[in-house]
């Protein structure tokens, strides 16, 4: 499944898309950054409501493929600037984390 497929499955807003063909093989949901670093697998979609600049550093360093901001959360200005510079995939969905993950999992299967 690709970033493009996730956008369609969640009917998500594209915040910044660097590579909509990037392959996604799994998911991770959580807001504590060290939990993400310790547990999120490489090439996953990360579901979170955290929207500060450190989210981009974590996602980049942990080889995460896509950040999914849930509950309609938008990136703050620093995060938006950084994902544009780094070239990272970020989308936003109105769904809460549970329902976003359910829709994602259906599409992944």
């Amino acid at each position: 499944m690709t970033v493009y497929d996730v956008i369609k499955a969640l009917d998500a807003e594209e915040i910044y898309i660097a590579d909509d063909g990037r392959e996604i093989t799994s998911g991770y949901a959580g807001d504590f950054l060290s939990h993400v670093m310790g547990r999120a697998p490489a090439d996953c979609a990360w579901f979170t409501i955290m929207n500060n600049v450190n989210v981009c550093a974590v996602a980049t360093l942990a080889d995460i493929a896509l950040i999914v901001l849930c509950e309609g959360v938008q990136p703050d200005d620093n995060l938006l600037a950084k994902v544009k510079i780094q070239g990272f995939n970020v989308i936003s969905t109105k769904l809460d984390i549970y329902n976003a993950v359910v829709a994602f999992d259906r599409a992944l299967r």
Binding site: F32, S34, M37, M50
Partner: peptide, 15 residues
């Protein structure tokens, strides 16, 4: 509030 403070940083470094 920024998402730090889970107390998992040092354990991750060891892991």
């Amino acid at each position: 509030a920024l998402g730090f403070g889970a107390g998992m940083g040092l354990p991750n470094m060891k892991k």
